[in-house]
Structures are given as C-alpha cells and as structure tokens.
Design a protein around this nucleic acid. Sequence first.
DNA 1: CGTTGATTTGAATATCCTCAACGTGCGTGG
DNA 2: CCACGCACGTTGAGGATATTCAAATCAACG
Lengths: 247, 247
Amino acid sequence: MKTIPAATVRQVDKAHPCDRCYQSRFCLPIALPPEQTGRMREIVHRTMRVGKGECLFRSGAAAMDKVYAVHVGSFKSVVHSTDGRQQILGFHVPGELMGLENLVARRHAIDVVALEESEACEVNVRDLELAARDVSTLQHQLHCLMGDRLARAQQDQFNLGSAHAEERLARFLLDFSQRLKARGLSSWQLTLHMTREEMASYLGLTMETVSRLLSRFHRDGLIRLSVRELQITDREGLAALIAPLES
Amino acid sequence: MKTIPAATVRQVDKAHPCDRCYQSRFCLPIALPPEQTGRMREIVHRTMRVGKGECLFRSGAAAMDKVYAVHVGSFKSVVHSTDGRQQILGFHVPGELMGLENLVARRHAIDVVALEESEACEVNVRDLELAARDVSTLQHQLHCLMGDRLARAQQDQFNLGSAHAEERLARFLLDFSQRLKARGLSSWQLTLHMTREEMASYLGLTMETVSRLLSRFHRDGLIRLSVRELQITDREGLAALIAPLES
DNA sequence: CGTTGATTTGAATATCCTCAACGTGCGTGG
DNA sequence: CCACGCACGTTGAGGATATTCAAATCAACG
C-alpha cells in the first residue's frame, strides 16, 4: 500500500515561534490575557517543520503529553486497520489543534501527516493544564476547543452515515472553504493539497467516484477546477445539494 | 417522521444522588480524592429520571453549562437535518458522559433521548471547571474523558467510512458488549434497547439490511437472538469479521 | 522524452436500498 | 377473552448507487 511515512521532523530554530501567534489567535487557537503572554513561552516550546508526506507524530498506545497547532500548511490524520485499509479522519488547516484525542492511553494509533511543506507548534499539555489552572479563560478555551472538535466529528458522522456521494462532496468543499475563510484565507479560490484518493477516503468513497463528481460539478458550473486548483463559482448551487443540520 | 420527543423530565428527589457514585466510579466517570468527596455535591446537583422515548436535553445554538452522566438505563444522541433525515451519533450506557460537545456555542442541535426508563446525573460544568482548577487529577480526568470520547467518534468514522455492512454490525455488537462489560454488566447476554431502525441509523444502513444481517449471524451460529435479547455465542467468529485498528 | 504517479473516463458488477408483503407481539377496546 | 390496530420486525424481488476493473490521458520530473 502506502509507504510508511517518514519521521524526519526538524525543529525550525532554537528560538520560540513568533509572538504574533501568542497575542492574536492567528495560528494558535489559544491565547492568554496580554499581561500573561509571557507564559505562552512555557507552553509552546518549539515549532516543527514537516515536509510533504512526512509524519508529524504518531499517537499510539501510550498517552501523549503534546498537542500540535497548525501554523503553516495542512495535515491529514489517518487510522490504519490491521488488514491494510486506511481511513482519513480529517484535514487540518492553520489555526486548528491536532492530537487532542491522545491525552488518554489505550487507543488506536493515528498518524498525522503533512500534505505539503508545513509547520506546527508543539504544545506541552502538562504546562497547558498547569496554566489553565491559573487562568480560567484558558481552561474554558481549551474545553471549547475540544467541544468544537467533537462537534466536527459528529458532523462527519452525519455526512458518512446519512448523505449520498454528491452531498458528501458538496459538504466537504463548502466546509473546507469555510474553515479557510475563518482563518482569513481565500474562501472561493483555494488549493486542494490532498489527492483524490485522500478526499475519497475521508468521505468514505472511492477515488473514481470523487473524480466523476468533481467533473460533474464542473460541467454544472458549480466549480472551476484544474487538478488541484479549485474555484467555487456557484456557492448557492453547491449549498442547494446539501441539507444543513438543524440548530 | 418521528414525533417530537417529549421533555417531561423529573428530578428524582430533592436529595443528592447516592454517595457511592462519588467514591467508586461506578456510574459517574469522574471522582475526587476521598477527603474531597464532599465537593462532589456541588458539582452534581441532581439526578434526572427520564421515561422511554423522552428527551433528557437538547443541545442547541446556545452553549450549555451542563453535562450528564448515565446512571441507569441507556440513551441515544441524534442530529436532524433540515430535510427530515436523522442520524444517530451514538448510544450511551451507564458510566458514560453526555453533552461534552456542547460546551461551545454555535453548533448543530443534538437531542439526547432515553431508550428505556433511565436516570442521569446532571453535572454543572462551571462547578466542575472550578473544582478542576483545585484538583489536578479531576482536571486530567476530564481531559481524558474528552479524549476518550473523541477517540470513540473516530472509531465510528472508520466504521462508517471503510467497513461494509457486515463488518459495521459486527463491530457494533462487539463494541457495545465491550462497553457494558467495562461497567460490570454482562457482556455475552444483553438487551438491545434500541430498535432495528436506530441501529441502522447509527451504522449508516437501513433497517432491512440490519435485520438481514442479524438473521445471517444467527444462522451462522455467531449469535442467538430473539428480537431484543441478544447472546453472543461465538465471539471469535464475530471478531473474525472485523479487522481491528492498528495500535 | 520516457517514466512514474495522479487523474479521468468507461463498462460491468456488487452491495445495499427501495418497495412491498407478511409476521409477531402487545395493548386497547369491544 | 378475543379481535383489532399498531408498531416493530422479517423476508423477498427488483433496482439504483457506488465500486471494481481496465484503459487512456495528463502532469511532473529526471
């Protein structure tokens, strides 16, 4: 199947990551009040640079004491079954936290792999928990992040369980675009750094089905697409293919 | 479609739930050190009794400040799309925590409905967070619970995305039995309090497919089943139908 | 340029769904 | 007490959606 992802991860430099990350939430989804930002240096101790296709970390049987925030680029997280199948659990764009599911031991292994040249901040969970005990807003932010992550997983569950191929893909495109927009990136012109097969795995479909549907969306004037470069030309049209969840 | 679930929930009595819950983790998956168990009375303020088919709570647009632990019985959590479809996100047995995804606002609504006459402990999240700041083990337990919940969601994602109907059902039966066992309940003889349609929704299948597969499992001697009463007679045989996730 | 990997497209097939009929258990009212 | 209705469950036949297999096209890169 796939080659085992390499683990050549480099610390980007001896210094800490940019202070901008601490103060605005641009790339780190947690923040402390201005007078406490100095403490962030205890929590985030380094920034890792990861090449395309390389593995940032593998969460395994043992509980980890690190989580990672996407700084630049994008990642996928993927589980493998013992018979060689694999399922992509999600894609991660700047500002999103990875590894929250690994605070507890005794679970399946998940590989987190870069889809392109990327950077991630390593966050020490012990220090984070320690700081959360002093700063209630941080504690609450952390709980919100986990809640948010759980809500996302549930949306995926709905998509896999109750939607046909067309709707699954439409949902994915809109959601992905939405998440980029939330980080101030372009929401109508974007690059799909994952392969068709990776999209398919995430959506519980095959590569061929995804390809056919993308072609159809293109024919119907919903998107413009040249391989990896995507433009959403008719957001309304795409949205018409999906039924939003009740709120 | 389905009738809107009633909301007639009764507080079981004016007193607090049994202290046994505080000390052992039998029905409440969080605990404080012995000398602090008194504080649990602040955190858990009441026990709710819910009739079959009734709604314990609906998490909606607003962030909630409560989570619930199953005490007796079982629950399902379900999302609805605006066009009337519904997806069951999970079933909850004694000792499991519900509502963790609702600490953050601005999300889809989820109904949590009792599958039988049930009881749940209401936990005040504000008080819980407050206590977690004093007691680091509690804080860590909470994070582990959320991590565990996330890991479960990811398993479901694998099941929905990468497994055929037969494997999905086999996984469900084994997992469900396993979870009951973890709470000291019988793992080989159990009652499926959910309907075939509810199982099907959870598994992303139709009622008919589930029914056919259960019949087949029965014919093949893997299970004994009379409507809702299930015996797992050949655990190995069932396990042979699934490929576990790598760890 | 030729090789490699990703993507697209087509045709045949399989799995699962839809529709429909029938069976079963249970509570209700005659 | 029995008949009836109703909800749930089972089983079958046919059909649709998505998969599998296969081949052709395209892009990147040495």
